[in-house]
Amino acid sequence: MTATKRITIKATRFDPDKDEKPRLQTYEIPFSDDSMVVLDALNYIKGHVDGSLSYRWSCRMGICGSCGMMVDGVPKLTCNAFLRDHWPRPITVEPLNNFPVIRDLVIDMDDFMHKLKAIKPWVIRKQPVPLGGGAFVQTTAQIDEFRQFSQCINCMLCYAACPVYGLNNEFLGPAAIALARRYNVDSRDEGLGQRLPVLADAEGVWECSFVGECSVVCPKGVDPAKAIQQTKLDTTMRFVLPFGNRD
């Protein structure tokens, strides 16, 4: 019988009511299965070692976007970060960069929620279509225009990776702009004119200097950097084209 391997997890602990600043707490846990991910390790700690550790999670399969954290300094979904890729080295788990911390590994996402609402992430029609008006028909090519951007799960990894947002949190940010583009290029949508004032604002797409790290860390292949650059091109073309091309 072989002895179970063990792995060291260093997790951020922070209670704003008691602590002046965050600190790392070390836990040593069994690494019993090569399919274990960082989220499994946190769940083991919470269930068997220290029930006071706070973090968000839900689906465990890279769909809900809840379990994003800094794993050894890189923003990752902890349900998709395997312990085997780090063992035997210790793993440091911290809350996502660039966000206020509510407690331990839990970040405050309110800022993003306000920005998401500002870009109106829903299909906008100039004239409402009655329920009995029939289905919107789209070709495969029309769906392909926005499919990639619609994969965003609001996990906030892109915001944690973005130094522009880290330096100026007024910046609209990668996910919000990618989601705005998802609707702007949807053939059913007519809301570009309503989103443009937010997107073309000084804190909108033009704040981005194309670091590109948002697209590197995105777990769903959304490529927010591409969405931002293409929106820059769109806003420029609308500025130089005749008035008839603006709505």
Partner: peptide, 9 residues
């Protein structure tokens, strides 16, 4: 980076 910026059909 042009491949990410320009989009033609």
């Amino acid at each position: 980076l042009a491949g990410a910026i320009l989009h033609f059909n």
